[in-house]
Design a protein around this nucleic acid. Structure first.
Lengths: 204, 204
DNA sequence: CTTTCTATTGAACACTTGTTCAGTTAGCTT
DNA sequence: AAGCTAACTGAACAAGTGTTCAATAGAAAG
């Protein structure tokens, strides 16, 4: 019935983001209740509505913020790279892996919870995903046009590369047998195999 | 309060599988109620318990059956292929794409609903997934050992290839600009680029 | 010290959930 | 026609859901 001693709106808001990210990633949006999130934060469910209009907005805000951070971070990173397609691709692959391995829960939510978004929210996040995909597609197209990449379909190559890179999050463990830098090197090798190989053996 | 005219246990059981597959894929396990599934079947929720002990078993059975069909089908297919690693890999890629594009909802559920499985059920499905992954891993290892494939890490290559192949289901549409056979060819090209390229340009 | 604002509590509200089962009707067998 | 079985209904049960808001205590400002 009363304000908690030491309570701070700023801290509760931050705790809410963290708790929601953790529980949505672990159990799924629909399987987690506002009461469970509140318990993780250390408040009652009613208190959450001071920080989010509703549950759907909570999910959307998490996803939107993550995707925006991804886009912004790549904008900065790509500006620091040489402009030729190969340097851009190498940079993109390393950036993607580093960024995603630092945000396991956010990445998981961004890819797994699209179905739980309302129509408008879905469209917004889909636009962000496409913006990110377009970054890689532009790199691949540029490489094909300059003759450095050998790709039958840059759009499909974009989907393939992002799928395989994002797939790292499903198995990578910090304490596993491979350092993340090794993972970067190995995946880079495979991606370059996809885009650059000019004398690959023909199927059939 | 009474049996429906024309009702047949066999038909209802089949309808239940189809309805559950469709709704779990579209909305997610936790977001779909037994009442909604029953409505799709054309019965009341209570009737479903003649065909499944509970909701969790319903999900598990769908996933388990799908994975078993996948494993069985590959067993048959691989027996029809020449035994050299390249033929096996080419066969695997084509098989994977064909099989998965015919079962969009099942594939979706198999990959998206793992979190909603109980611990024991999860372990069972995880074993099946690993069995399937091991098929590809064995092909890749064999290729490396015979000198035909050039891979730093066959295990990671396995994860990568399966991620990119399974990713096709997230965008492919039968009415899209590409026939599924073209998709097969393009993805095969990329996979061969990953495994076979001997003179790929070095990064950095 | 008083006043104002912030941040929460706790219960209510309307609704939904998974599951059970006695009763009823349709279909089949004798 | 009678008896038995299959397949369902419909409501109950216990529990939970998202969201609201009047009341209250803590913190900050004057």
């Amino acid at each position: 019935m009363a304000r908690k001693t030491g309570s701070s709106g700023e801290k509760t808001a931050s705790d809410l983001q963290l708790a929601a990210t953790k529980l949505f990633a672990r159990h799924g949006y629909a399987a987690v209740s506002m009461r469970q999130i509140a318990a993780e934060v250390g408040v009652q469910a009613g208190a959450l509505y001071l920080y989010t209009p509703d549950k759907q907005s909570l999910l959307f805000d998490l996803m939107h913020r993550h995707m925006q951070e991804l886009l912004d971070a790549w904008q900065v990173e790509s500006g620091n790279l040489p402009n030729d397609p190969k340097s851009q691709l190498v940079g993109f692959v390393r950036f993607h892996i580093r960024f995603h391995l630092k945000r396991v829960d956010e990445v998981f939510i961004a890819y797994m919870e699209l179905r739980n978004l309302s129509e408008d929210n879905f469209a917004s996040i889909a636009n962000q995903r496409q913006a990110y995909e377009n970054q890689l597609k532009a790199i691949l197209k540029s490489g094909v046009e300059s003759g450095k990449f050998n790709l039958a379909d840059p759009k499909l190559a974009t989907f393939s590369i992002i799928a395989m890179l994002t797939g790292i999050n499903t198995w990578f463990r910090n304490e596993g047998r491979l350092a993340s830098t090794s993972v970067e090197d190995i995946y880079l090798d495979m991606v370059l195999g996809i885009v650059c190989c000019k004398s690959r053996p023909q199927p059939d």
